[in-house]
């Protein structure tokens, strides 16, 4: 029998992980909701940005917060670059081609990372203690990552609801032609969307850097779960993605303690498949 304290600890860690997963899922979901394209390589962009953070901090000796900001800048740049070079030409292609173009990017990023930086795991070392709360140990970096990811999500929410350009991003996903009649170039709004998606990837990269080491297959490890969360929450549904992130991360964390990490993922994916059948539109579909 497992000591319940471990389960509680796993649950707390699950919530922490959920924050960062939610960030990833929201970025991907934003892009999907507006452009109607699934960026299969989205988490591989995170991987590249994590390398950026690693090099800035560990090799060039930047302070961690500045390195993290550097990661965000890299994320934005990647988002824009991918948009202009790959997404723009395939906006009107059939969905298979869209999946494959970003899938090709996945191979490209994985292997160029292998080529440039080898398959070694590289980690940003931050010497921060674990903190103890009533017998439960929570790692400090995870707590920071969690708090920051919640803050960034609040920021994203305010951006999308309060600003002109944020509202325009939501509007263009509902009626591209009408938005043009409002004087907004849909192409420009798309680029901004991809840039914001890239920024989310960059923030996630910075926050993941302090908890995980990076390697070329980082995207392959976190990518599928991110897609599952998006679909589970309802593609394009931000609130749903937020909730789904925590459901999935809890399953993975607790499953990991009770069985093994892989089984945690297997259960999460199995739940995803079952949920797809029970609620094809996502967990919040009925409220819509």
């Amino acid at each position: 029998m497992i000591d319940p304290i471990f389960l509680v600890e796993a649950a707390v860690n699950g919530i922490m992980l959920g924050g960062v997963l939610a960030l990833l899922a929201l970025g991907l979901n934003l892009i999907f909701g507006v452009l109607d394209i699934v960026w299969i390589a989205y988490v591989d962009l995170v991987m590249v940005a994590m390398y950026a953070v690693y090099f800035l901090v560990m090799v060039y000796g930047w302070p961690i917060w500045l390195g993290g900001l550097g990661g965000v800048v890299v994320g934005v740049a990647l988002g824009i670059l991918v948009h202009l070079l790959i997404i723009t030409p395939i906006l009107d292609s059939p969905p298979v081609n869209q999946l494959l173009a970003t899938g090709g990017l996945l191979f490209f990023l994985q292997s160029i990372a292998t080529f440039l930086w080898s398959t070694d795991h590289k980690s940003v070392r931050v010497s921060l203690p674990s903190i103890e709360l009533g017998g439960i140990f929570v790692s400090y970096p995870r707590l920071i990552a969690f708090v920051l990811s919640i803050l960034v999500m609040v920021g994203l929410y305010l951006f999308l609801t309060r600003t002109f350009i944020g509202t325009a991003i939501r509007a263009v996903s509902q009626d591209r032609g009408a938005m043009a009649l409002m004087g907004a170039s849909p192409q420009k709004i798309y680029v901004v969307t991809s840039a914001v998606g890239g920024a989310m990837a960059g923030v996630a990269a910075a926050l993941l850097s302090i908890q995980y080491s990076v390697h070329p297959y980082f995207g392959a490890a976190f990518g599928p779960i991110t897609f599952m969360i998006c679909v589970l929450g309802g593609l394009g549904n931000m609130v749903g993605a937020f909730i789904a992130s925590f459901v999935m991360s809890e399953i993975i964390a607790i499953g990991g303690v009770v069985w093994s990490t892989e089984m945690g993922y297997v259960i999460a994916f199995a739940l995803f498949i079952v949920m797809m059948f029970a609620r094809p539109g996502g967990i919040l579909a009925k409220r819509q």
Binding site: I90, A101, Q110, S111, F115
Partner: peptide, 21 residues
């Protein structure tokens, strides 16, 4: 050059998909 072959492979795939839909 470990990874170089795959890098070019990925790049060519993207190019093919874009230009030969």
């Amino acid at each position: 050059f470990i990874g170089m072959a795959e890098t070019i492979y990925g790049l060519l795939l993207v190019i093919f998909i874009i230009f030969l839909p």
